[in-house]
């Protein structure tokens, strides 16, 4: 019998009876997603990876998301893949706005290293236990967390004549500055 996500949830609940596990609901939640508490995240991930039946050996990606007016504000998303069962499973951790902090899963899957750095770079979520939590995509001296919803896009107005007072249409006198038309191949 092929492994189903329900079976994964059942096994997880059996192994962690006390943890507050909650299935994400909604009309258009297309992937099987569980909310798990941050404290037991590393243990759960190790269990999911090492269990012979589940065998979630790969972490294809993880990322963050900012649900600004909602409380708690942030969440991190972990997409797990079991190669032997061709099954995907999604875990989510909710994170509060002050001191956003979540344990790092680099010890479970080394590939989480850059993903967590990227999430830190974009959202300022701190991953405790990460070997080297620095900015990755933005310059090191960047200030702010660009993908947070309260951070602006940084739009720069296009300079047209109607919105730039000192901009003039090219005057005929500028023609003098233009390069002379020459033939560049001697005949």
């Amino acid at each position: 019998m092929p492994l189903t996500p329900e079976r994964v949830e059942q096994k997880l609940r059996e192994r962690f009876p006390d943890a507050a596990i909650e299935r994400q609901t909604g009309d258009a939640v297309r992937d099987y997603t569980l909310y798990v508490p941050g404290e037991s995240l590393v243990e759960m991930c190790t269990f999911l990876r090492d269990d012979a039946e589940l065998d979630f050996g790969m972490l294809p990606w993880m990322g963050g998301c900012d649900h600004m007016p909602a409380v708690p504000r942030f969440e991190t998303v972990y997409n797990l893949l079991s190669l032997s069962n061709s099954l995907r499973f999604t875990l989510k951790v909710r994170i509060a706005e002050e001191q956003p902090r979540v344990p790092s899963v680099v010890a479970v899957w080394p590939t989480a290293n850059w993903h967590e750095r990227e999430t830190y770079d974009f959202y300022g979520i701190e991953f405790t236990g990460h070997p080297e939590l620095t900015r990755i995509l933005l310059p090191d001296d960047w200030v702010g967390w660009p993908l947070r919803k309260d951070s602006p896009l940084g739009y720069e107005e296009v300079a047209f004549t109607h919105n730039t007072p000192n901009r003039r249409l090219p005057s005929p006198s500028l023609k003098k500055l233009a390069p002379k038309k020459v033939k560049y191949r001697a005949q």
């Binding site: 933005l138 660009p146 602006p152 896009l153 940084g154 739009y155 720069e156 296009v158």
Partner: peptide, 13 residues
């Protein structure tokens, strides 16, 4: 030349 389609925080215009 001018930033193209990427008029945002990361790209030089």
């Amino acid at each position: 030349s001018c930033g193209g389609v990427f008029n945002n925080f990361a790209i030089l215009q």
